[in-house]
């Protein structure tokens, strides 16, 4: 396996650290949602802006759909974060994470002419942290770091060989 490697140790290590940092962030976002009693995506969805605001708000207005969205968010963030962190099912985690971040980006897009008042920290023009984190994940998808530093190394060992 090491023979087929095309990355230097430093490159591999820094990409893995990048993956673990994103994992840490998403995992913690998930964990806090479990630790906050009565947490709900309601406010986040209702304050949605941009061309998909109606779609996000309609999610919040239906109790059943909202409940599903809440569950997907909590478990999604938790499992994706964990996957990235420990390099477990890394590719799946990367793609799911990128998709989730795309939703966050579109729910509150930093488009020209949209004001968020107190909701944002910092200043963004078209590009925000969600978009950057998504791009990081997409970039990482081209480097299977989990198969070097992470549990995928054991799981996919025979496949690589």
């Amino acid at each position: 396996m090491e023979k087929t490697r095309f990355l230097s140790n430093r490159q591999l290590l820094s990409l893995s650290i990048l993956r673990i940092l994103v994992g840490w962030h998403l995992l913690y976002e998930g964990v806090t949602k479990f630790l906050t009693p009565g947490w709900s995506a309601y406010g986040y969805l209702m304050s949605a802006e941009g061309f998909l605001s109606g779609f996000f708000q309609s999610m919040a207005s239906d109790a059943t759909i909202l409940e599903i969205v809440n569950l997907l968010n909590k478990w999604g963030l938790l499992l994706i974060g964990l996957g990235l962190f420990i390099g477990l099912l890394t590719r799946l985690s990367i793609y799911s994470g990128a998709l989730l971040l795309l939703f966050y980006y579109l729910a509150h897009p930093p488009f020209i002419g949209i004001e968020y008042g107190f909701l944002t920290e910092g200043n963004y023009l078209l590009v925000d942290k969600n978009l950057i984190e998504m791009a990081v994940l997409l970039a990482l998808s081209f480097f299977p770091t989990g198969q070097y530093i992470g549990l995928d190394r054991i799981i996919f060992k025979n496949q690589v060989n």
Partner: peptide
């Protein structure tokens, strides 16, 4: 399939960090 010591170490390398994460989260929560 054969898992050697090196594989095991590298595959489990993020786990100590996960431990740090768990510790910090718990502390913060308390």
């Amino acid at each position: 399939m054969k898992i050697n010591r090196r594989d095991l170490l590298k595959s489990l390398a993020p786990l100590p960090l996960l431990g740090v994460f768990g510790f910090a989260t718990n502390w913060d929560y308390r």
